[in-house]
Structure formats: structure tokens, C-alpha cells
Amino acid sequence: MILHKSNALTFFTPKTTNSLGTPFFDTGISAGFPSPAEDFKEQRLSLDKELIKNKEATFFARVSGQSMIGAGLDDNDLLVIDRSLEPSNNKIAVCFLDGEFTVKRLKVDKDDVWLQPENPNYPIIKITSDNDFIIWGIVTSVIKKV
């Protein structure tokens, strides 16, 4: 269910399930040469339990744009955002700035706040008292399609 769509992000609420999860083989997958066959021990993995720590305060948003590619956030990636986490220096945050949502890295120094993109083609934004500014939530995970 789409909650809000802006130029930079599209927000969704997580839909949790009561299922036991998807089969998960905790043996490690080699990215080099294949390892000899091991006994596979199947477990169940719930992405809800892995990615969502506070269900009531967690939202998903889809990235639109290239300003955070240096942090590994690409166009169309799905962000997991926790609104209950305390914002702090160097965290990646979803912010509401002058009527638009944006995702940037927080830079905090005493009483000053900057929103730093992770792409040199985008400017650093200094937050002033003239801005309508709210730190909406902290990005905890990114989900990518391959």
C-alpha cells in the first residue's frame, strides 16, 4: 500500500505475515571456488524478523534518483526506515525538507546540520532556520534487486 509519493521517495508500510519464513541454509555460499558438499541444515528465515525491529515505527520507501549511489543506495532500491531511532552524525536519514522527502547522510556539528549526498554531482545542503526541516527516520537496511 503506497502511503506517499514524492520526487525522491515512495513510502510503503510493511506488511507482516504470520508465516514461519522462507527456507534458509546457513552454510555460507562461496563466491570463489565451490566448496566440497556439506550436510545442509535447513532453518527458517523471516525477513520481517531480520529487517524490522520496531513494527509500529518501520516503513519502506523506494529510492528515486542518484544522489546516494556512493552509499550503495541506487535508483529503485527499497529502504527500510525506522522512525524510532535517534538521528546522529553520519547516519543515513530520510528527511522532509521544504515540502519534499529526501534521503541523505546526516552531518551534525554542535548546532549545525548538513545533508550530505553520496554523489559529487549533488550539493551538500546546510540546514538553516529558513528551512522547513524534519528528520523523518533512519535508514536501517537497503533491499536490492539483482
Rank of each mutant, 00 (worst) to 15 (best):
C95L: 05
S67K: 01
G32D: 04
K145Y: 01
F24C: 03
K41H: 02
G21A: 00
P14F: 13
Q43R: 01
S88D: 14
G137R: 13
V63D: 08
T13P: 00
I125S: 05
G137C: 13
I135N: 08
T17K: 14
I69R: 11
T140V: 07
Y122V: 11
E56C: 06
N121H: 14
I135C: 13
K15M: 12
T13W: 04
T17F: 11
V142S: 15
P23E: 01
N7C: 06
W114H: 03
D111K: 12
G70R: 10
S30C: 07
T102I: 07
D74W: 14
S64A: 14
L79N: 15
T13A: 08
I125K: 07
S46I: 02
W136G: 14
E38Y: 12
G137N: 13
G32Q: 03
T140M: 07
A37M: 15
N18C: 05
S64H: 15
S67T: 04
G65S: 11
N76V: 07
E86S: 00
V108E: 10
L9P: 09
M68H: 04
D130S: 10
A93F: 14
A37W: 13
A37I: 15
C95T: 06
N7A: 11
E86P: 00
S129W: 00
K110E: 11
L79E: 15
H4E: 14
L9Q: 14
I127W: 06
P23Q: 02
F11N: 09
F59A: 06
S46E: 06
T102C: 09
H4M: 12
P123N: 12
S64T: 15
D48H: 13
F11V: 10
T16P: 11
V142D: 10
K53E: 06
I138Y: 11
I138N: 09
F12G: 11
N119E: 08
V108T: 08
K53N: 06
F33H: 04
E100A: 04
K104E: 01
V103A: 14
K107E: 03
G28P: 12
L73M: 15
L47G: 03
L79R: 14
E50R: 07
A57G: 02
D132S: 01
K110W: 06
I125Q: 04
T22N: 01
L20K: 08
S67D: 00
S84V: 04
E50K: 03
E118H: 05
Q66A: 09
E38W: 08
K41I: 03
I127N: 07
T10V: 12
R83Q: 08
N89S: 13
P14K: 08
P120C: 13
R62K: 15
S88G: 10
W114R: 05
T22I: 01
N7P: 04
F11A: 09
D82G: 07
H4Y: 11
K110F: 06
E118R: 05
F25W: 02
L47Q: 04
D109Y: 05
G65C: 12
N18V: 06
S64N: 15
A57E: 08
